[in-house]
Design a protein around this nucleic acid. Structure first.
Length: 344
DNA sequence: CAAACGTGGCT
DNA sequence: TAGCCAAGTTT
């Protein structure tokens, strides 16, 4: 794919296929940069099928950039509940507020400015610029690296951060200036539907004639990617504590780190006398035991139910919630599991 | 740069 | 089952 004619034929094959075969996804019915932005953030490390219902509920709740800018954080997080990577939601709102305050509500249309927004990295910047504004900017995600590693026989380890630059340069070289949106999305759609990780459907591929890996029978050996290491396991005891008014005790997690600043049923290492004193409980009974696997660690959770004689808040990061208030509280999935068991 | 950061589906 | 994977960003 050195000469102009080859590149042009590749672009035509890719964008032609994309426009004929693309899936009908909710965020493909708009060019509103705000809505494209929301979809791109939700799609980070998250499957299309998972995102669809979240996207629709989110846009219903916050139809414009101003609606999201004005939303209370707990309302925002309730819409994000269960999607994971909750800093994405907070960063998105921070970025949106910056656009409203600094740019009159207009999402920037150039890479340096849009990249300065919270939560907008090199991929998301390129995606918004190309899809919403039609700019010929690279948008390199995992799909693009897999697809291009095969087409161009690039054997660099895609797990290494610096490797992304190689693919960005490749896209910049190849991109269709007539339709950058279809080109970038076509690369990703191809990765999602045809050029899949384990069993690529090369016989259905619209660009197999351009694919060096297919030509050499090496498509299954690419991309090169070093293995992730195993997750560590941690044991916790979760305390489900109800007071005499029937309210539940919830605790705010630390500002940084895992599930930052999210509410949880108080989490301790074990049921010591000290713990009993702090929470005003005497006896507690085991009612649930489960495992929750995060990307880099595993929680083994034992859940014990207890009653407390205390009615006032027990500390700065603890509060009692009525059953109705519990419904409004955004909870991470392991805490939802406990809540569902308790409330049923 | 390596590691942290959620969750669910697939093999 | 255990591991890998999915439209990445931040620190």
């Amino acid at each position: 794919m050195e000469n102009f004619d080859q590149k042009e034929a590749f672009r035509q094959a890719l964008t032609g296929w994309f426009n004929a075969e693309k899936r009908d996804l909710p965020w493909r019915q708009t060019k509103d940069p705000y809505k494209i932005w929301v979809s791109e953030v939700m799609l980070q490390q998250t499957r299309v099928d998972t995102v669809i219902p979240y996207y629709e509920r989110f846009i219903d709740a916050f139809p414009t950039i101003h609606d999201l800018a004005n939303a209370p954080e707990d309302v925002l997080l309730k819409k994000w509940e269960g999607l994971g990577y909750y800093s994405r939601a907070r960063n998105l709102q921070a970025g949106v507020r910056e656009v409203v305050e600094q740019y009159n509500g207009i999402v920037p249309d150039n890479r340096p400015t849009i990249s300065s927004l919270k939560g907008v990295g090199p991929y998301t910047a390129g995606a918004i610029l190309s899809i919403a504004y039609g700019k010929p900017e690279h948008a390199v995600d995992g799909n693009v690296m897999r697809v291009l590693s095969r087409i161009l026989l690039i054997t660099e380890d895609i797990a290494k951060p610096k490797t992304r630059k190689i693919f960005e340069a490749a896209v910049t070289n190849l991109i269709d200036h007539e339709d950058p949106s279809s080109f970038n999305q076509g690369l990703m759609e191809l990765g999602a539907l045809i050029c899949t990780p384990t069993s690529p459907k090369c016989l259905l591929c619209p660009v197999r004639d351009f694919c060096q890996a297919f030509h050499e029978g090496k498509e299954r050996a690419l991309p090169v990617k070093t293995k992730a290491k195993k997750t560590k396991e941690i044991q916790f005891l979760s305390l489900v504590i109800q007071n005499e008014q029937g309210k539940w005790l919830m605790e705010k997690r630390p500002k940084g780190g895992l599930l930052a600043d999210m509410w949880q049923f108080p989490l301790v290492e074990s049921l010591t006398d000290d713990v009993k004193n702090v929470y005003g409980i005497e006896k507690a009974s085991l009612f649930l035991e489960f495992k929750h696997i995060f990307s880099h660690l595993t929680w083994n959770i034992k859940c014990m139910a207890a009653h407390s004689t205390k009615a006032d808040d027990l500390s700065e990061n603890c509060r009692w919630f009525s059953e109705e208030e519990m419904e409004e509280l955004p909870l991470p999935v392991p805490m939802q599991k406990i809540k569902n068991e308790v409330m049923k």
